[in-house]
Design a protein around this nucleic acid. Structure first.
Length: 593
RNA sequence: GCUGGAAUAGCGCAGUCGGUAGCGCAACUGAUUCGUAAUCAGUAGGUCGAGGGUUCGAGUCCCUUUUCCAGCUCCA
């Protein structure tokens, strides 16, 4: 048995033990038990219980589980007919529903744990509870869930439980969770004074001076790359009349997600809505003048603020907000240009993600049943996309989600992994055959006929807000030099060193290095501590010696390592070099220049 | 929207049975002029998220509401 199978059997068996424990505590007549699958770090089980359970109950349940294991009961597998199964689970509505939905003739198996607990299950399981005695488990939390994930159906209580083969692995996992919590951008961001939220603007970040510096550094980097790849940036209105959204189809498909400013009534022509997406702006710009095949591909990028209304309870720090910016671009291409253009976008993505040391994987989503447009065009586009992905990642190097594309076109999603191995859906590249049709977009082809362009929507960061949230967690707030809110903290030792500190500050600023200093009469140790807490990459300590010799003494982030006697000009050169090269690592020695 | 939790000084927290709101850090003032992560002393700061109710009396109990958190669902 390999580790995966081992975990599956043990976790799944433990979930039965959890259900049995809960039933023993609350009484079988008071509990409806639904399903209890294994998940990445353990398992859960869904119940309907007579009351809400909380942390106080967890210990009780765990103890009951251990007590049950100590009984060393036999597990018996039985094959039963549909009728027998329905009889066994009489009164259990979820089990009954599951049984009734099993296809005619399908083998139904049940597992008995001891004499008093039976669960509908495919298995496999342990033969005796004794086998589970050595495992480590701990109830993590309880939360609400819906039967079959459908918010219109029964509301259940889901009990989550960690489960690992031994205590050591459980502890390692809990350490990882703790590490992730320490990196939580919702905690680190405000601590580093990067952003804040105010209750009067739920889900809309205030970017504080330090955070906005990083935000702009990120955009500068992004703009530089796009200039090279032939993009032209625009900005459009955030507020547009309803008419625009009716044409684009958002009024019909996305109304619930828009902040709407009604006229006399919402049906009034003067009703306006904040844009949830940028695409119509790019389209209007395209249609601003007659277009020829010579204009294509027309690459329009844009980072305007967009607003999307979310249902309450869905907001989550920078990861899920109601006001944000996307590193958006819309490219209008002729059909035959799709392949080359996608390839270029993938190059941009590789370069951008690589700069952060992040790896990413691609997923292709293909034509759904409710697709719109010409099937020939779809087939060609999907073939193109597949070919590109094969070319870049090789056979099996990417996932395909059949039928998961948007109704207006197939798409490639880019997912990246962070420092803790967590996956995030970030970038997306979507082909769109529909909007060019809705807006009746055209271009004059070489042969003089009018043709319709294809639109590519694409984003690499996805939401810039979310991306920064991910970066904060990935780097634990210790950003690469070029992205650090403030790059250099300057500490004059005594007030008489303020003049030299001012000179150093001026020189740093002239060279576009973001620096801060503290001219107050505070103790130098206090000044150093403040800048350390902000995670400034370099802290310069300036005293008599430095002022005299025009050098700096550098204290490096993350350690108390010091580099003494670095000529001021050399230090500036180091900073400029890291900014120019978007270096991931910090230069730690003047000799490395 | 649903389930469960939370909200007390700028931040992190304490506040017992319902009986005059506290601690640490930060801030401010003064002293200290200092060589690599917290110098010393003092001062000020709060309608306890908001609204209503119970009570002689509410941070504490009840109801409503807002925001946030853990999930569900949804998503960039």
């Amino acid at each position: 048995m390999n580790r995966e199978e081992f975990l599956e059997v043990y976790r799944h068996s433990l979930s039965h033990i959890l259900a049995k424990a809960v039933i023993e505590i609350f009484g079988s007549e008071n509990v409806q038990y639904a399903i209890g699958p294994q998940i990445a770090d353990g398992f859960y089980y869904d119940f309907v219980l007579p009351r809400a359970i909380g942390p106080d109950d967890f210990k009780t349940i765990e103890n009951k589980m251990r007590e049950i294991l100590k009984r060393k009961e036999e597990w018996k597998r039985e094959e039963v007919t549909r009728e027998e199964a329905l009889k066994i689970f009489e009164g259990q509505k979820f089990k009954t529903e599951l049984i009734e939905e099993l296809p005619e003739g399908e083998l139904i198996t049940i597992y008995r744990t001891g004499d008093d607990f039976t669960d509908l299950c495919r298995g496999p399981h342990v033969d005796n509870s004794a086998e589970l005695l050595g495992t480590a488990f701990e109830i993590r939390s309880a939360s609400g869930a819906y039967w079959r994930g459908d918010e219109h159906r029964d509301s259940l209580q889901r009990v989550y439980c960690y489960a690992f083969p031994d205590k050591k692995q459980l502890k390692e996992h809990k350490d990882l969770i703790r590490e992730a919590m320490e990196r939580d951008h919702k905690k680190l961001g405000p601590q580093l004074e990067m952003f804040m939220f105010d209750p009067t603007a739920p889900g809309m970040a205030y970017w504080l001076p330090r955070g906005w510096k990083s935000y702009n550094a990120l955009l500068d980097f992004w703009r530089g790359i796009h200039e090279v790849h032939g993009y032209n940036e625009i900005s459009g209105p955030v507020l547009s009349k309803k008419e625009l959204w009716v044409t684009s189809g958002h009024w019909g498909h996305y109304m619930d997600g828009m902040f709407i400013i009604p006229g006399e009534t919402i049906d009034d022509d003067n009703t306006m809505a904040l844009k949830p997406m940028n695409c119509p702006n790019a389209i209007k710009v395209y249609m601003n003048k007659p277009r020829s095949y010579k204009d294509l591909p027309l690459r329009i990028n844009q980072v305007d603020v967009i607003h999307r209304k979310e249902k309450s309870g869905e907001l989550n720090g920078l990861f899920r907000v109601q006001e944000f910016r996307q590193d958006d671009a819309h490219i209008l291409v002729a059909e035959e240009q799709i392949a080359d253009e996608i390839k270029d976008i993938m190059d941009i993505a590789t370069q951008i993600y690589g700069t952060f040391g992040l790896t990413y994987a691609a997923e292709l989503s293909t034509r759904p049943d409710n697709y719109m447009g010409d099937i020939e065009v779809w087939n060609k586009a999907e073939e193109d996309l597949k070919e590109i992905l094969l070319d870049v990642y090789g056979e099996g190097g990417f996932e395909v989600n059949e039928g998961d594309g948007a109704f207006y076109g197939p798409k490639i999603d880019l997912k990246m992994k962070d420092a803790l191995g967590r996956e995030w859906q970030m970038g997306t590249i979507q082909l769109d055959f529909q909007l060019p049709l809705n807006f009746d977009m055209k271009y004059t082809a070489q042969d003089g006929t009018l043709k319709r362009p294809v639109m590519i929507h694409r984003a690499i960061f996805g939401s810039i807000e979310r991306f920064i949230g991910i970066l904060i967690e990935n780097f634990k707030g210790a950003f690469p030099f070029w992205l650090s809110p403030v790059q250099v903290g300057v500490v004059p030792i005594r007030e008489e060193h303020n003049a030299y500190a001012k000179e150093v500050m001026d020189l740093l600023r002239v060279n576009r290095v973001r620096a801060e200093t503290d001219y107050s009469d505070k103790n130098m140790k206090v000044k150093i501590k403040t800048f350390k807490n902000y995670k400034d990459p370099y802290i310069l300590v300036l005293g008599d010696k430095e002022a005299q010799e025009r050098t700096v003494s550098i204290n490096l982030r993350g350690s108390n390592k010091q580099i003494q006697n670095v000529p001021l000009d050399t230090f500036i050169e180091m900073c400029v070099k890291m900014n120019r090269e978007y270096s991931l690592d910090m230069i730690e020695s003047a000799e490395n220049l």
